[in-house]
Design a protein around this nucleic acid. Structure first.
Lengths: 141, 141
DNA sequence: CTAACTGCAAACGTTTTGCAACTTT
DNA sequence: AAAGTTGCAAAACGTTTGCAGTTAG
């Protein structure tokens, strides 16, 4: 089953890596496929499992290295909502998240309409790295 | 606003625990002292270290159990900004945080003036548990 | 040749768990 | 005795690291 949006072809992924100056390797393509090939937020362990599910194999260390590389190059975004796992979000547009802790589920909130107002000035010697808004949910009875 | 804020006496702590239906034990008082006796965000390990610094001893398991108990009773708040550690915040008023990842430092932002607007409706079957705004900082230049 | 990349396994730090001992009633 | 609490040590979990081997330029 191939749909351009949910399963980008390798050329698109290659272009994406190239655009960030990332040397493409088979392993990195696998990781990129796992992240961009579905519309989900994946934890590092889930990426590792996903990459190794279809008969191929990429080591844990390489998955973690690759995810770190992708984050440092702005290809994906790290979302920290649960101490037990970091999620990697292929959506790098400004946006926020619903987090359903009961289900361990993270849902994007489009950033266009969301505004945070009334923030105080930043502490001395620091600059803004980003604003995460996490709307924590619980299941209603 | 009464001022014994930086070193509340045991009676205040006892009242605080009682108010949440928490049976006071010497260990729980120690943990409460560590959290409310200073104006800092502490990680579980820091609480453990703090409690064990002044000659007394509370086991790791008890510290973790106690922190979990305090969170579940709303006595302190869990702030998750770093996968490597959960911070415990004695300030349970609505507020947000600056997070300086380089320094591992968390700073409260008073919630009174901060507003988040433009959020979409919550997903079916869920209700709001809270909104965390995390302003991530990096050191300039 | 050199630099970059990968994989394995061991190490790491935080948190959780199993279980026996101790308190409190 | 029953319920609740504690401490120790071990385990579990996600993540990082050391290093040898491989690949690419």
């Amino acid at each position: 089953m191939e749909r351009a949006s949910s399963a980008p072809c390798d050329e698109q992924l290659l272009a994406r890596l190239a655009g960030r100056g990332i040397t493409p390797t088979p392993q990195r393509l696998e990781v990129a496929r796992a992240l961009f090939g579905r519309c989900e937020h994946l934890s590092a362990e889930e990426v590792h499992a996903s990459v190794n599910a279809d008969g191929r194999h990429v080591s844990r260390a390489t998955v973690y290295n690759t995810l770190g590389l992708f984050v440092s190059r702005g290809l994906v975004r790290e979302v920290i909502v649960d101490p037990a796992r970091v999620f990697y979000d292929p959506n790098t547009d400004p946006h926020h998240h619903f987090f359903d802790a009961d289900a361990g589920r993270l849902i994007d909130i489009d950033g266009d309409n969301v505004a945070v107002t009334g923030l105080p000035p930043l502490p001395e010697g620091t600059e803004l790295d980003g604003i995460d808004v996490i709307v924590r949910l619980r299941h209603s009875r």
